[in-house]
Nucleic acid binder design. Sequence first.
DNA 1: CTGAAAGCGCTAACAT
DNA 2: ATGTTAGCGCTTTCAG
Lengths: 330, 330
Amino acid sequence: MATIADVAARAGLSTATVSRALNGVSTVDPQLVNRVREAVRELGYQPHGPARNLRRRRTDVLGLIISDVENPFFTAIARGVEDVARDEGYSVVLCNSDEDADKERRYLDVAAAERMAGVIISPTSATSHSGVPTDGTPVVAVDRPLPAGSGDCVLVDTREAANEATGHLLGRGWGRVACLTGPEGLATADDRLAGYRDALRAAALPFDPALVRRAPYRADGAREATRDLCATPIPPDGLLIANSAMAIGALEALRDNGLRPGRDIGVVAFDDAPWATLVDPPLTVVAQPAYDLGTTATRLLLARIADRARPSSTTILGARLIARASSAER
Amino acid sequence: MATIADVAARAGLSTATVSRALNGVSTVDPQLVNRVREAVRELGYQPHGPARNLRRRRTDVLGLIISDVENPFFTAIARGVEDVARDEGYSVVLCNSDEDADKERRYLDVAAAERMAGVIISPTSATSHSGVPTDGTPVVAVDRPLPAGSGDCVLVDTREAANEATGHLLGRGWGRVACLTGPEGLATADDRLAGYRDALRAAALPFDPALVRRAPYRADGAREATRDLCATPIPPDGLLIANSAMAIGALEALRDNGLRPGRDIGVVAFDDAPWATLVDPPLTVVAQPAYDLGTTATRLLLARIADRARPSSTTILGARLIARASSAER
DNA sequence: CTGAAAGCGCTAACAT
DNA sequence: ATGTTAGCGCTTTCAG
């Protein structure tokens, strides 16, 4: 592989001039710039990233640590992140923590070791050890908060959204609503449960722990939990589901129990999955602004990279209930 | 940030010994290894990746270039890649080419500049410029072939699968099957069309170009194309759809036209999306071994990294037709 | 088994 | 405006 010295020799210049020409320093004679370009082409020269990063003492890569690449909510975030990062000349490394605190920590260490310019993360748990790079790498959290003061956060007002969704179900005549949410300790899971309780309280309804089920944010746990719920002495006639992967399992279980959404049970799920209008009946959802979460977080991160002394902020974006037939009036 | 020299000073050793201790060179006195470990802990030392990579003249990162992070088929591949890469001590950088040859080339250049150990790519087009790193970075193609001789390929026998799927539709009494496939020049799109024609030929049916529609592998193009197809003088009574994103658009269009799969039109789509059993009626699909594509490609890549002289290979994995009600006997 | 020292490829002072 | 040169932090000869 050709080095910058080879290019310099070929162009009859010093490495410094070649470096300047390649980096667009304006003081270089345009003629020389052309000579450099030609030499680069002839030699098939590719700048050596690690060497450049070592010398510059910084990199142009951002880390994005999410808990599930297969979840459309997170891939939409990823697209938002990538779009603004690329516009600003950064590349993005996508890492999958799988909701596993160890993997998360390992990726955080990789980010530190590679001296990434910054990290966007949706932290796995709310423990104070979680989600924060060991060194001073700038970090912003998406979807889930970070321990106070360790960076910026971009969140969805998910508690209010859960409240609204539950109220919607209650208002349409589904009086015994159950809640299917994620593991304890996951902020979004707890917040959605809290919103559910808010709505119960607002409707002067008692909170019945038997109507709450927790499971990982995946289809299988949700399937089982829903089966369980249906086998209860007094089964629910409404269901709030905390994410779209869970919705798949829950809807399967309902179907297997002969329960039709919108007729036998009112159903609302978080995340406006692309298939939500295709299932029968179409699914009422809480649409979260995932793409905007990504773009906003990235802009904040870039701002923090530029100015580390910036006061840290919390941005809260709203969600939107899209009513469809699965929550039709009873 | 502490450097290896700081650690060495703290432990009262040379940087060479610290380096050896940190890299598990067995000749180091275990006592000294402990002293090093302690110093590392006390200083919060993080090895400097770029410096290490510069010196070693190699990195432990693999690039994965796919055309759509939001497509479950590709995210399943990504998971396969990541799982075996991590087992072998490599990290994976996920890059999104968006089916855009320019972006693809840019990412390939990034891979070269960063001196990535290897690249897994699903090349955007079949042109000879596409998908091949400019330098000698080892490369393996997934899902779509590379120009002959430029690396290993891991493909699905998609032509045969399309043949089988079309034959399935024909065999169930749907006599006028249309084909909704991807853009010309995309290997998978062309292969699926070829398989469709194979089946027609086998059934001694004429090929009618009016029954073929091409669109990007996305929902909206497919929606429009399907609307189009339905507005035709003699509309089709069967539909082969080349990917799951397209299936969403196509199913919406059919519904809007009052056409019920399995009753008015036989439907088969590529990709076993998680929602395929939830739509009404459940969707017959061609399940592709996406995860295995990823693991296989990665193992091949690692083998090639270890031995660049290895003869290049092509691996073909089979797909599986899963018959459901959308292709019920007419 | 450990230490000294060279140098990976590049950029940024500094000098001209 | 261009050239010279000193490192960035690490690994790896080469000596001892």
